[in-house]
C-alpha cells in the first residue's frame, strides 16, 4: 500500500502543504532568480543547505557556465496618434537601444507571412507582431524569431505580442535568438491589449510612432550549479530515476510557478519517500536545473557530464508546466514502457489523476529522451499556466497548496514505483 501511504501523507497527512510552504519561504526570501544573477546563486546555496538538512543523500552542486543578461531600464511610449506609455518586457539576450532610444514609425503585422509580403514597408520601421495565440509551442516562435525576421527586412526593432493565453495588461518575457549574419535589433514583448489596439489603429490608416528605450546588456558567462540530491538505491544503486524542475526563473514576479512549483514538488517527492522510510531498488535522483530559461544550458552540461551512464537511466521526469491540479502524465517511450506507466498511473486512482498522454518532454530532460531514455512530464492546466508564465503575475498567489499536494503525490508515486520495480522500463 505504498501508493496509498504516499498519497495520504502528501494530501491529507502531516506533509500536506509542505512543498507550498517551503517554496513560499524561498521565493519570498530570494525573489526571482534570473540566469547569472546573485539571487539565483543565493537560491542554489539555500537549496544545498535545505537538502542536506532534509537528510537526503549525496547532496552536491555540479558547476556549470551560464549566460548573464540584464534588462536594465526600459520603456516604450507611443507618440502618435496619441501619447500612450506602454508596458513592455525586453526579451532575454536582446541588445539595448542607444541612450536616446529608437523613435520610428510602426508596421503592424499578424504573421511572418504578412511581414514577408509587406517587406518593402518594413525598412526603417519598428515591426509590431500581433500574432494570434494558438498554443505556446506554436506561437512562441514569434517571440524567439521576431527580431531576426524583422531585421532581415530592414526593421530597427521588434515589439511582439506576449505569448499568453490570457492577459490583464501583463507583458510576458522569455528568451529570443539572434542569427549569425543577421543584424541584431532590440526586441521586447508588449501586452496583448496594446498589440491589438495598434492593429486596429493601423487598419484604420493611422500613422503610429513609438519611442523605444532599452538598457539591456549581455555580460560574460557566469558561474552556477545544478543542484543534486538522492535516495541511493538499495539493490541497483547505479540505476537511476531522475526527477527534476528548474531553480532559475525570469526576472519577473517571484518565479513561483515557473519553475518553483516543479522544483519543489520534485524535492517533495524525495522527502515523502524518505519520511515513509522507503528506499527504492534504484537511486532516486533529484536535480534542480540552472539556466533552463536560456535553453536548458545547465541541463545540457549535466547531460554531457553523465551521458556515459545513459543505459542506467530508467526514467527522466521534469515538471515545468505548472503544479495546479494535474491532468495526468505526459509520457515518451516505447509501447511496452507506456503500458507499464499506464499501470503505474492506475495507482493514483485515489486522487483521480490516472491519465497518460503522449509527448512527455521538458527542456532539461529532452537530451536524455532523444538518447532513448523514457521521459515523463506532469501535464497541467495550460490555459492558467500560460496566463501567468514569464510575467509579474508569477507569484505564490498564482499557486494553490492543495493542488500542489496532489501534484507532489503523483510525482512521488510515479518516481518511487518506477525506481522500485524489479526491472527498468523497457526501451524502444
Amino acid at each position: 500500500d505504498v501508493a496509498k501511504a504516499i498519497i495520504d501523507l502528501a494530501v491529507y497527512g502531516k506533509a500536506q502543504n509542505r512543498s507550498y510552504e517551503r517554496l513560499a519561504l524561498l521565493v519570498d526570501t530570494v525573489g526571482p532568480r534570473p540566469s547569472g544573477s546573485r539571487s539565483l546563486e543565493k537560491a542554489i546555496q539555500i537549496m544545498y543547505q535545505n537538502l542536506r538538512e532534509d537528510g537526503l543523500e549525496n547532496v552536491h552542486l555540479e558547476p556549470v557556465k551560464i549566460p548573464h543578461w540584464e534588462r536594465g531600464e526600459e520603456s516604450a511610449v507611443m507618440l502618435e496618434p496619441r501619447i500612450h506609455r506602454m508596458a513592455i518586457l525586453g526579451l532575454g539576450s536582446s541588445i539595448g537601444t542607444p541612450p536616446e532610444g529608437i523613435t520610428a514609425e510602426v508596421l503592424v503585422v499578424t504573421s511572418f507571412e504578412e511581414l514577408q509580403r509587406r517587406a518593402p514597408e518594413a525598412r526603417g520601421k519598428i515591426v509590431v507582431y500581433n500574432q494570434p495565440y494558438v498554443n505556446y509551442s506554436t506561437t512562441v516562435q514569434y517571440r524567439v524569431q521576431g527580431a531576426v525576421e524583422a531585421a532581415k527586412v530592414g526593421a530597427l526593432a521588434s515589439l511582439i505580442r506576449s505569448v499568453a493565453s490570457f492577459s490583464i495588461y501583463s507583458p510576458h518575457t522569455g528568451i529570443q535568438e539572434y542569427q549569425d549574419g543577421v543584424p541584431k535589433i532590440p526586441t521586447a514583448c508588449i501586452t496583448v491589449e496594446d498589440a491589438e489596439m495598434m492593429s486596429r489603429m493601423a487598419s484604420r490608416g493611422n500613422r503610429i510612432v513609438i519611442q523605444l528605450k532599452m538598457g539591456a546588456k549581455n555580460y560574460p558567462d557566469a558561474d552556477s550549479f545544478n543542484t543534486v540530491a538522492e535516495i541511493i538505491g538499495s539493490k541497483y544503486p547505479e540505476q537511476v530515476v531522475l526527477v527534476s524542475g528548474h531553480l532559475d526563473s525570469w526576472d519577473v514576479g517571484q518565479g513561483a510557478m515557473d519553475d518553483g512549483g516543479g522544483a519543489f514538488i520534485s524535492w517533495e517527492a524525495l522527502s515523502l519517500i524518505k519520511d515513509l522510510g522507503l528506499r527504492p531498488k534504484r537511486t532516486l535522483r533529484l536535480v534542480l536545473w540552472t539556466a533552463e530559461e536560456q535553453g536548458g544550458v545547465g541541463a545540457f552540461q549535466y547531460y554531457l557530464l553523465h551521458q556515459a551512464n545513459v543505459s542506467n537511466y530508467s526514467l527522466v521526469m521534469e515538471s515545468d508546466l505548472g503544479t495546479f491540479l494535474p491532468s495526468g502524465l505526459q509520457f515518451t517511450g516505447s509501447d511496452e514502457a507506456r503500458a507499464i506507466v499506464e499501470e503505474v498511473m492506475r495507482l493514483l486512482q485515489p486522487v483521480n489523476v490516472t491519465r497518460v498522454f503522449r509527448a512527455g518532454e521538458g527542456t532539461d530532460i529532452n537530451f536524455w529522451i532523444q538518447a532513448g531514455v523514457p521521459g515523463a512530464s506532469l501535464l497541467d492546466d495550460l490555459y492558467r499556466y500560460f496566463s501567468f508564465h514569464h510575467s509579474d503575475g508569477d507569484t505564490m498567489t498564482a499557486l494553490d497548496p492543495k493542488q500542489m499536494n496532489v501534484a507532489a503525490a503523483v510525482w512521488a508515486v510515479v518516481s518511487y514505483v518506477i525506481a522500485d520495480m524489479e526491472e527498468m522500463l523497457p526501451r524502444s
Binding site: D1, A3, E343
Partner: peptide, 24 residues
C-alpha cells in the same frame, strides 16, 4: 513464450501488472 502484448510476453506483462498492483 505466450503470445505477446506490446512486445512483452503476456505472462511477463501480467507479472509486471501484478507487481505494480502490489504497490497500491
Amino acid at each position: 513464450k505466450p503470445i505477446y502484448k506490446n512486445d512483452i510476453s503476456r505472462r511477463t506483462f501480467q507479472e509486471i501488472k501484478e507487481e505494480i498492483a502490489s504497490y497500491r
